[in-house]
Simulated scan of single mutants.
Amino acid sequence: MTNSEPDWLLWAREIQAVAQSGLAFTCDPYDVERYRSLTALAARMMAASSPLAGSAAELQQLFAAETGYATPKVDVRGAVFDRDGRLLMVRELADQGRWTIPGGWADVNQTASECAVREVAEESGYLVRATKLALVHDRGRQGHHPAGPFSIYKLFFICELLDEAPGDEAAGMAPNIETSDARFFARDEIPQDLSTGRILSHQIARLFEHRARPDLPTEFD
């Protein structure tokens, strides 16, 4: 599968990653200035090419906060099915109430599956257990919109319910401030207004297939 993102974004992202990694290892003050110039160049490229990306100054500040060797970020998602085979979806407050499956950035000191379980509890109140890693997708190869400044891996876990009813602020977690609704949908009832930065219709279709056929191997790229 070819990358669905524009060339300018791939080039700017690569320049930023080279600069970030260079700053992590160089001790030469002249190289520090060169890498900082590359960071500023990447910010200007993104700002000039996409009004949604933000200003060059905002992007440069975002990039400056990224330190160490540049690697993709990790997004985890939990595909929770009830006994009737319906998929749990939530409304994202940060994306005008569009629908997705629960998920978010992976946290340190937790395994990927633990992060998925935590995200489900935080965003829906349901306690679940991750049973299978179904999809490992590069966000740029799948057609997610809008495109973002960083490279992202998306991990989708099939999860089973441990309780048919949501808990009260599951597992003692803080009140949910990310989603406004959580419902189960049959395959032919999936909402059309998806949060396409987080989930796409073809990914949902594959998650239903993995739920129906647990023997399917993990799909990647």
Rank of each mutant, 00 (worst) to 15 (best):
L135W: 01
L135T: 02
L135P: 08
H137M: 08
D138H: 11
R141G: 04
R141C: 07
Q142S: 11
G143P: 02
H144Q: 14
H144M: 05
H144R: 12
F150L: 05
F150R: 04
F150P: 00
K154V: 15
K154A: 11
F156Y: 15
F157V: 03
F157R: 00
I158V: 15
I158R: 05
D163G: 04
E164C: 00
A165Q: 14
P166V: 13
D168G: 09
E169D: 14
A170Q: 10
G172N: 04
G172E: 02
A174Q: 14
A174I: 06
A174L: 12
P175C: 08
P175E: 06
P175Q: 10
T179A: 04
S180T: 10
S180E: 11
D181T: 07
D181S: 02
R183L: 15
R183T: 01
F184H: 06
F184E: 14
F184P: 15
F185K: 03
F185H: 13
F185N: 05
D188P: 06
I190K: 08
I190R: 13
P191V: 10
S195K: 05
T196H: 08
G197E: 08
G197V: 07
R198D: 06
R198W: 12
L200K: 06
L200M: 09
S201M: 04
S201Y: 01
Q203W: 00
L207R: 04
L207V: 01
